[in-house]
Design a protein around this nucleic acid. Structure first.
Length: 324
DNA sequence: CTCGATCCCTGGACGC
DNA sequence: TGCGTCCAGGGATCGA
């Protein structure tokens, strides 16, 4: 599950491995996750990879200008362009010897001028790849919020406190902050002792500042440890990260909170599994019950136990209107 | 504006 | 061994 630290790790690896290489040819497999597959085949060959950048959970492979075609004044042909890559859930991008048989689910192979192949593998195809010239790229990137590592404390606090959505939803919203996903949202909320279902507008200035600090600190440490490998994340060298060892909340249902020993709980907030300490991260008023995971519901049903249905209007009513 | 639901997709875990 | 079901989840989209 590549989030900012994992994508940063991959981008750094790629920078070491393929900067300056020229793409000679492109071979595609399944293409339903590629914006315009033909554009890759048509425009990538001949281009040099001049930079590798990260933008939120995206990687940007900056390409050299195409050789100007005769009669075109280079007007369209020579445009700056980039390959935008999102790893989704299971995406991996890594250079390998061209003679090595491709892994299963390899959908893009770019032959490089040093004899290797840059390969994109993605079992679930939740990723995205797009060839974009400058203007469409700029347009694409306007949808995203601040980089969590660069956002100032003031801006972060403002962005959070002016919203009435749950803090977990805000952290996951790429239009608010680009690059935070489920793991680092839960980890930073645990560190800041804030319940994931708390409303952004309900956070005190102090809490929001603490969260800002926690988030940055955790992201930096995670980058230093080359990200978290839960099931399938591997960096550009095919190595797993190490930060999963430092997880305090994510994936630790039933285990003891490392501050207070209470059992970490899991619930659904903002449609995502959310792990939190019921003791350190007090539930907001009005958030009576977390929806039970389907598995638990099924188990109870099988055991013929009746679960009193929570009145949903009550559950979500809350939050009087009128907050700015 | 914010919410939940649904879809996309596959592999792995688990129950029977 | 195998089958069915659930689940992981980022993101788009739709209706309430």
């Amino acid at each position: 599950m590549p989030e900012l630290p994992e994508v940063e790790t991959v981008a750094r690896g790629l920078r070491q491995a393929i900067l300056g290489r020229r793409i000679l040819s492109v071979t595609l497999g399944k293409t339903d996750f590629i914006d315009d597959p033909a554009a890759l085949e048509q425009h990538l060959p001949g281009r040099r990879i001049e930079a590798v950048e990260r933008y939120g959970k995206f990687m940007l492979l900056r390409l050299s200008e195409a050789a100007a075609t005769n009669g075109n004044d280079g007007e369209d042909a020579a445009k700056q362009a980039s390959l935008l890559v999102h790893l989704g859930m299971t995406g991996q991008i890594t250079p390998s010897p061209a003679e090595k048989p491709p892994e299963k689910h390899t959908h893009v192979c770019m032959l490089l001028d040093d004899g290797r192949e840059l390969r994109y593998t993605d079992a679930r195809r939740f990723g995205r790849i797009a060839y974009l010239t400058e203007a469409p790229l700029a347009e694409e990137l306007t949808r995203f919020g601040a980089d969590p590592l660069e956002v100032s404390k003031e801006e972060f606090v403002n962005r959070i406190r002016e919203r009435r959505a749950r803090i977990k939803a805000l952290l996951l919203d790429q239009g608010v902050l680009r690059g935070v996903g489920n793991i680092y949202a839960d980890e930073s909320l645990w560190r800041a002792k804030i319940h994931p279902a708390q409303l952004g507008a309900k956070l005190s200035g102090k809490q929001a500042e603490t969260l800002w600090r926690a988030l940055q600190d955790i992201l930096r440490k995670a980058i230093a440890m080359r990200g978290s490998s839960i099931s399938d994340f591997l960096d550009a060298e095919g190595e797993p990260g190490e930060y999963q060892r430092r997880h305090r909340a994510y994936g630790r249902e039933g285990k003891g909170c490392q501050r207070c020993k209470a059992a970490i709980r899991r619930g659904i907030v903002a449609g995502r599994s959310s792990y939190f300490c019921p003791q350190c991260q007090p539930s907001p008023r009005g958030f009576a019950a977390l929806r039970l995971p389907q598995r638990v519901v099924a188990m109870l049903a099988r055991a013929n136990v009746r679960v009193k249905k929570v009145d949903e209007r009550r559950l979500h009513k809350p939050i009087k209107a009128g907050g700015r």
